[in-house]
Nucleic acid binder design. Structure first.
Lengths: 125, 125
DNA sequence: TTTGATGCAAATGTTTTGCATGCAA
DNA sequence: TTGCATGCAAAACATTTGCATCAAA
């Protein structure tokens, strides 16, 4: 299945590349609607799924009620402020070694992990 | 708000203490219904929320579509098999030090982390 | 032309909630 | 008795999907 260009998908990717807000699908929708007032939420979801599948964006799930999206696909970790619920990027050294720790006594094969940190951001403390 | 005893809540807690399956609310519902055929899904959800709030059980979220629950409240990590979608307990040494790593260059305060591992369980490989 | 993409609305899956009734304290 | 807990059904959310139409290639 080859992809066809679409202005809507391009706008979504562009928006995600230029924000640090880790927006939800709904927030992406509201923002893109300012440029394309007729875009539908379904289209936003379909494109977010396509882009995440192609690994052109990241999907962050389990942090809050809705999934969030990140245009920065470099491996990095996230922080959730338990007060303002904002998601921030963390600048930290790799913790890939925790996979090895998890593997030690495990009969199957650990391939990776999903991690986010939480606490209070500097705006809220 | 003091809690009143209820057979339903007791049965839910009992069930979670004696299974290693990390069931979803719906699976808890189906199991409890064998003893209390009239219990409603709403009651299951309300009690899972109460028990999780009182920290008598753990809620695991973001691993899959629905939240899962664990009667074992000792701190431990979980593994999600990407093939059979089962959740297993991991017997591994502490990785609490990753909070310190995350804190190093961070302007706010990192208080904890949420982590699960994934890969292929021994039944599936 | 052909086929993927869109907009719209309806459907889905999960979880919460309003309300009258039931039951523990 | 008082008021939390329950069962039931409806509502609330987040996300997906069917379908007719639109637009890239």
């Amino acid at each position: 299945m080859a992809f066809k260009y679409s202005r809507q998908r391009e706008a979504i990717k562009e928006y995600l590349l230029h924000t640090k807000e880790h927006p939800t699908a709904d927030i992406v929708y509201m923002n893109i609607r300012e440029t394309y007032p007729n875009i539908s939420l379904g289209t936003v979801y379909r494109n977010l799924n396509l882009l995440a599948e192609k690994e052109e964006i990241l999907r962050l799930n389990g942090m809050d009620g809705s999934d969030r999206y990140d245009g920065n696909t470099d491996p990095h970790y996230h922080f959730l402020c338990k007060n303002c619920r904002r998601v921030l990027d963390l600048d930290m050294e790799s913790i890939e070694h925790i996979n090895d720790i998890a593997n030690k006594n495990f009969p199957g094969k650990v391939e990776g992990h999903v991690t986010y940190f939480y606490g209070v951001c500097n705006n809220c403390e």
